[in-house]
Measured scan of single mutants.
Amino acid sequence: NKASVVANQLIPINTALTLIMMKAEVVTPMGIPAEEIPKLVGMQVNRAVPLGTTLMPDMVKNYE
């Protein structure tokens, strides 16, 4: 099973992601793959992301 990106803390709306906000975890359903973490740094979330939430592509602005 591949790990996904999971919020390590509450991430407020429009916050630019940093490494300490994210962790890799095997979850179902899968979200953004953990190997994308370096690419996510500096990208903004378009909603508040609660602690423990799996990051999905539609939660990150301009994620492709």
Score class of each variant (00 low, 15 high):
residue 17 L to E: 01
residue 41 V to P: 08
residue 15 T to H: 11
residue 41 V to Q: 13
residue 27 V to E: 03
residue 57 P to W: 11
residue 14 N to M: 08
residue 2 K to L: 15
residue 64 E to R: 10
residue 27 V to I: 04
residue 15 T to C: 09
residue 36 E to D: 13
residue 61 K to V: 09
residue 64 E to S: 13
residue 20 I to D: 09
residue 34 A to N: 05
residue 61 K to E: 12
residue 52 G to W: 15
residue 17 L to N: 00
residue 58 D to R: 04
residue 21 M to A: 06
residue 52 G to V: 01
residue 12 P to E: 15
residue 16 A to Q: 08
residue 30 M to N: 13
residue 64 E to H: 09
residue 27 V to R: 06
residue 36 E to I: 08
residue 7 A to L: 02
residue 42 G to Q: 14
residue 10 L to K: 09
residue 11 I to G: 00
residue 36 E to T: 08
residue 1 N to F: 11
residue 55 L to P: 01
residue 57 P to D: 08
residue 35 E to V: 06
residue 63 Y to L: 04
residue 2 K to H: 15
residue 34 A to Q: 06
residue 24 A to T: 14
residue 30 M to L: 11
residue 23 K to Q: 03
residue 57 P to Y: 07
residue 35 E to I: 04
residue 59 M to G: 09
residue 18 T to C: 12
residue 47 R to Y: 10
residue 44 Q to K: 10
residue 61 K to M: 05
residue 8 N to D: 11
residue 45 V to M: 09
residue 23 K to N: 05
residue 19 L to M: 07
residue 56 M to L: 10
residue 12 P to T: 12
residue 54 T to L: 04
residue 41 V to S: 08
residue 9 Q to C: 10
residue 23 K to I: 05
residue 31 G to T: 01
residue 59 M to C: 07
residue 7 A to C: 05
residue 25 E to A: 05
residue 58 D to M: 08
residue 9 Q to T: 11
residue 12 P to D: 09
residue 39 K to Y: 08
residue 55 L to G: 00
residue 51 L to I: 14
residue 40 L to V: 06
residue 9 Q to M: 06
residue 38 P to Y: 13
residue 11 I to R: 00
residue 14 N to A: 11
residue 48 A to Q: 04
residue 52 G to S: 04
residue 6 V to D: 00
residue 1 N to D: 15
residue 19 L to I: 10
residue 55 L to V: 07
residue 19 L to R: 05
residue 26 V to K: 02
residue 11 I to Q: 00
residue 38 P to C: 13
residue 47 R to C: 10
residue 35 E to N: 04
residue 13 I to T: 08
residue 36 E to S: 11
residue 50 P to E: 14
residue 30 M to I: 14
residue 6 V to Y: 06
residue 42 G to Y: 05
residue 56 M to W: 04
residue 21 M to D: 11
residue 50 P to T: 12
residue 9 Q to Y: 11
residue 23 K to F: 07
residue 21 M to G: 05
residue 17 L to Q: 00
residue 6 V to E: 02
residue 2 K to R: 03
residue 31 G to D: 00
residue 55 L to D: 01
residue 63 Y to D: 03
residue 37 I to N: 02
residue 48 A to K: 13
residue 36 E to V: 08
residue 10 L to Q: 11
residue 27 V to D: 11
residue 28 T to H: 08
residue 13 I to V: 09
residue 14 N to G: 08
residue 57 P to V: 10
residue 61 K to D: 12
residue 49 V to E: 01
residue 18 T to L: 07
residue 51 L to Q: 09
residue 20 I to M: 06
residue 47 R to K: 12
residue 46 N to E: 06
residue 13 I to R: 08
residue 26 V to A: 13
residue 50 P to L: 11
residue 39 K to T: 03
residue 47 R to G: 06
residue 37 I to Q: 13
residue 49 V to D: 01
residue 36 E to M: 05
residue 59 M to L: 06
residue 17 L to V: 07
residue 31 G to L: 01
residue 48 A to N: 08
residue 17 L to I: 03
residue 44 Q to D: 13
residue 24 A to S: 10
residue 28 T to A: 14
residue 42 G to H: 07
residue 47 R to D: 13
residue 18 T to Y: 04
residue 55 L to R: 01
residue 39 K to G: 06
residue 40 L to R: 00
residue 44 Q to M: 06
residue 36 E to Y: 07
residue 1 N to M: 13
residue 19 L to Q: 14
residue 57 P to R: 14
residue 45 V to W: 00
residue 25 E to W: 05
residue 34 A to E: 09
residue 17 L to C: 02
residue 47 R to L: 09
residue 10 L to T: 09
residue 25 E to N: 10
residue 63 Y to T: 04
residue 42 G to P: 01
residue 36 E to G: 12
residue 55 L to H: 00
residue 19 L to Y: 05
residue 10 L to P: 15
residue 20 I to Q: 14
residue 32 I to P: 01
residue 3 A to F: 04
residue 55 L to S: 00
residue 6 V to C: 09
residue 62 N to M: 10
residue 40 L to H: 01
residue 50 P to W: 10
residue 56 M to H: 04
residue 17 L to T: 01
residue 50 P to H: 05
residue 33 P to W: 08
residue 51 L to D: 12
residue 26 V to E: 15
residue 52 G to Y: 05
residue 43 M to P: 00
residue 64 E to Q: 15
residue 7 A to Y: 00
residue 20 I to S: 14
residue 36 E to C: 15
residue 49 V to Q: 02
residue 54 T to F: 02
residue 58 D to F: 08
residue 62 N to G: 15
residue 4 S to P: 00
residue 17 L to W: 00
residue 24 A to C: 13
residue 57 P to T: 10
residue 56 M to G: 04
residue 33 P to I: 13
residue 37 I to Y: 02
residue 6 V to G: 02
residue 59 M to I: 08
residue 14 N to Q: 06
residue 32 I to N: 01
residue 19 L to K: 08
residue 51 L to P: 10
residue 64 E to C: 15
residue 18 T to H: 11
residue 28 T to W: 02
residue 62 N to R: 09
residue 37 I to P: 00
residue 3 A to Y: 04
residue 49 V to A: 03
residue 52 G to Q: 14
residue 57 P to L: 04
residue 46 N to L: 11
residue 41 V to G: 04
residue 53 T to R: 08
residue 22 M to W: 01
residue 48 A to E: 05
residue 59 M to P: 00
residue 1 N to G: 15
residue 20 I to W: 09
residue 62 N to F: 04
residue 52 G to F: 05
residue 31 G to M: 04
residue 9 Q to E: 14
residue 35 E to G: 03
residue 39 K to R: 11
residue 9 Q to H: 12
residue 61 K to H: 06
residue 57 P to Q: 08
residue 5 V to T: 08
residue 3 A to S: 14
residue 15 T to D: 07
residue 60 V to F: 02
residue 51 L to Y: 06
residue 56 M to C: 15
residue 14 N to C: 13
residue 38 P to N: 08
residue 19 L to H: 10
residue 45 V to Y: 00
residue 61 K to Q: 11
residue 33 P to N: 07
residue 56 M to R: 05
residue 33 P to Y: 06
residue 58 D to Q: 08
residue 6 V to P: 00
residue 18 T to N: 11
residue 55 L to A: 00
residue 9 Q to I: 12
residue 60 V to L: 03
residue 14 N to T: 06
residue 63 Y to F: 06
residue 61 K to F: 08
residue 12 P to Y: 11
residue 39 K to C: 15
residue 42 G to D: 06
residue 18 T to G: 04
residue 14 N to D: 14
residue 6 V to H: 07
residue 58 D to A: 11
residue 54 T to Y: 02
residue 15 T to G: 07
residue 52 G to E: 06
residue 49 V to I: 13
residue 31 G to Y: 02
residue 22 M to L: 12
residue 32 I to D: 00
residue 10 L to W: 11
residue 9 Q to R: 14
residue 37 I to G: 07
residue 11 I to E: 00
residue 41 V to C: 09
residue 3 A to V: 12
residue 49 V to K: 00
residue 5 V to H: 00
residue 30 M to W: 03
residue 23 K to W: 08
residue 28 T to G: 11
residue 63 Y to M: 04
residue 60 V to A: 02
residue 52 G to K: 05
residue 38 P to W: 04
residue 43 M to L: 10
residue 59 M to N: 11
residue 8 N to L: 13
residue 25 E to P: 02
residue 11 I to A: 01
residue 42 G to L: 06
residue 20 I to P: 15
residue 58 D to V: 07
residue 24 A to D: 13
residue 6 V to W: 03
residue 32 I to V: 15
residue 16 A to R: 13
residue 39 K to S: 04
residue 8 N to Y: 13
residue 33 P to M: 07
residue 30 M to E: 15
residue 64 E to A: 13
residue 62 N to I: 03
residue 37 I to T: 04
residue 53 T to Q: 10
residue 64 E to D: 13
residue 45 V to T: 13
residue 18 T to R: 05
residue 3 A to C: 15
residue 51 L to T: 14
